[in-house]
Design a protein around this nucleic acid. Structure first.
Lengths: 219, 219
DNA sequence: TATAGTCAGATTGTATACAAAAATCGTAGA
DNA sequence: TCTACGATTTTTGTATACAATCTGACTATA
């Protein structure tokens, strides 16, 4: 979804609504009244409706005909399903990246990976988390497949709220970095199957790390 | 996309427009004037706009702000990209199917595969093509991951027009069936990595079969 | 008391009207 | 003849009005 400079209210609204959902301001299951949203953003119902449908296409909200929109209520099964799907997509990106990355892209990925080693030794989870986004984004881009990259990035954005505390788990930082190392090594060597397996392994561990954590937050 | 019985004009329109694009009635690059569509379907512009945005979310049409909608023009690079992405998604589904299919699902898949053998010996490409849809659909379902299954099925639908003549290529039928056999064997045995590799192999061959064919149809 | 039916209020779906931007066409000038 | 500018026309974006459906409460009846 090439988010260019759209000045249209619909696009702005879609972003605002998605943000409100992702930030937790609109909680899971909450009904999204069109009039309420229109009033809140000082626009008419028309762009609100279009924005809601746009956000719905990413799965963040659900629209039932003649019954209105609501923030998609994700139960534990759905969440696990999405994590699994994301693991597969990330692994596919890593596989393609191993096949398609240019030498420059490979070098940049390796450089980022080495920089992140410092964040591990310095125990800087925030910096690591930020660079982690870059790390995965570089792999999406390196797959040289816009369709796949967009799907993967979209899923990651959608799951972001459930991963906030990911690197807070004690000892997770060095583990993550080691798993990244395996992915990087396979990609640099151009070993597609290994890159796939390594990324899948990494994402599976991320998922289980989440699950240990998720007894706190209900859906 | 749970297509329930929506009587809303928007939903009907979205289906009609998508069909018109997929059937080739609306050709690649053609502008889709809102008024024109509204007149054609005897509705107002409002449901047309919503339907267009819905169809756009599947990639069939492109909407540029303040410049209207047009049938997505897919060049050769885009098409190859989509085929690659679909291969990866199919492979992911096969991988998960190997891990998650129930005994009943495995038996049904095997039964279908054996039935398709008859279509090969009988040289019935139409019957094979029809069952081929089932074959892949069963694998999507067997992955037990709705998110992934929907993405894959969506991509397949979108690429369907470019695969029409797939099984017309002489000698393609037995090849396809043999590749299917490798996939089925891996899934039945629960060998995830093999299922992944076999499906990837299959889809890559499908893609190249298409490429041999595609010198005729321009984008 | 529980249940079914009906009616009022609220909310979504669709149509139309108006505003703003873009595309088109013609004309003037070099 | 070609280019550049400007007005007209067309098309999209947004607001509002109206129609259809759903929700929920109240009442009547078993």
């Amino acid at each position: 979804m090439a988010t260019r400079t759209d000045k249209t209210l619909t696009e702005q609204l879609a972003i605002n609504i998605a943000d409100a959902v992702l930030s937790g301001e609109f909680v899971s299951g909450q009904r999204l009244d069109e009039q309420m949203l229109a009033q809140r953003f000082n626009v008419s119902r028309t762009p609100v409706r279009e924005a809601l449908r746009h956000v719905a296409s990413s799965g963040l909200v659900e629209i039932r005909p003649r019954r209105g929109a609501a923030v998609a209520s994700i139960d534990k099964n759905d969440l696990e399903m999405l994590f699994v799907a994301m693991g597969e997509l990330e692994a596919a990106c890593a596989r393609l990246a191993a096949l398609s990355m240019t030498p420059i892209e490979r070098r940049r990925l390796n450089a980022l990976h080495e920089k992140m080693a410092d964040y591990v030794t310095g125990d800087l989870p925030e910096a690591f988390a930020e660079s982690n986004l870059d790390f995965h984004a570089q792999i999406y881009a390196g797959a040289h497949n816009r369709a796949l990259a967009e799907m993967t990035a979209g899923l990651r954005r959608r799951l972001a709220p459930y991963r906030r505390a990911q690197f807070r788990t004690p000892g997770r930082l060095p583990h993550s970095h080691a798993e990244h190392g395996a992915v990087v090594a396979a990609i640099l060597a151009g070993h597609a199957a290994e890159a796939h397996a390594a990324m899948l392994h990494h994402m599976t561990l991320v998922e289980s790390a989440f699950e240990e954590f998720s007894s706190a937050s209900a859906a």
